[in-house]
Computed example of a mutant assay.
Amino acid sequence: MSHLEMAMATLIQTFDQYAGSDGKKSTLSKAEVKTLVEKELPGLLQGAKNPDEVDKFLKNLDLNRDSEVDFQEFIMLIGALTCALHDHFCK
């Protein structure tokens, strides 16, 4: 597999690893998203000035307001974070 194919497989595996602890394998609950962010994106939490910022961020991630994060919303998060990092490192 190419690097990009491996990255895509990793995203799928990471989502699947955290989804389903509440019984729904196709979505992440708020608790599952928090666990994923804490374990997989610890720098994001360290950059937050207060816990309310993280909660607001997670709420904004749920685009369809169903109190869950589906795979498409998860990928949008990863894409947005990747763009922000790219912009940061290019400056």
Rank of each mutant, 00 (worst) to 15 (best):
H3P: 15
H3K: 12
L4P: 05
L4Q: 02
E5Q: 13
E5C: 04
E5A: 08
M6F: 05
M8C: 04
A9P: 11
L11Y: 12
I12Y: 10
I12S: 07
Q13M: 13
D16S: 13
Q17A: 05
G20S: 08
G20A: 07
G20V: 12
S21D: 15
S21W: 02
S21T: 15
S21R: 14
S26C: 06
L28M: 07
K30P: 04
A31F: 00
A31G: 09
V33K: 03
K34Y: 00
T35C: 13
L36Y: 10
L36W: 07
L36T: 10
V37H: 03
V37A: 07
V37L: 12
K39N: 10
P42G: 08
P42Y: 09
L45K: 06
L45W: 07
L45T: 09
Q46K: 12
A48E: 06
A48R: 04
A48F: 08
N50S: 09
D52K: 08
E53F: 02
D55Q: 04
K56L: 11
F57W: 15
F57D: 05
K59A: 15
N60W: 00
N60M: 10
N60G: 13
D62K: 01
L63A: 15
N64S: 09
N64C: 01
D66V: 09
S67C: 13
E68N: 00
E68K: 11
V69Q: 03
F71W: 08
F71Q: 07
Q72W: 15
Q72N: 14
Q72C: 09
F74P: 01
I75K: 11
I75L: 11
M76P: 09
M76V: 07
L77S: 04
I78V: 08
I78E: 02
I78C: 02
G79S: 04
A80Q: 01
A80N: 00
A80G: 00
L81T: 06
T82E: 09
T82P: 00
T82W: 01
H86D: 12
D87A: 04
D87V: 06
F89I: 12
C90E: 13
C90K: 14
C90I: 06
K91N: 11
K91D: 12
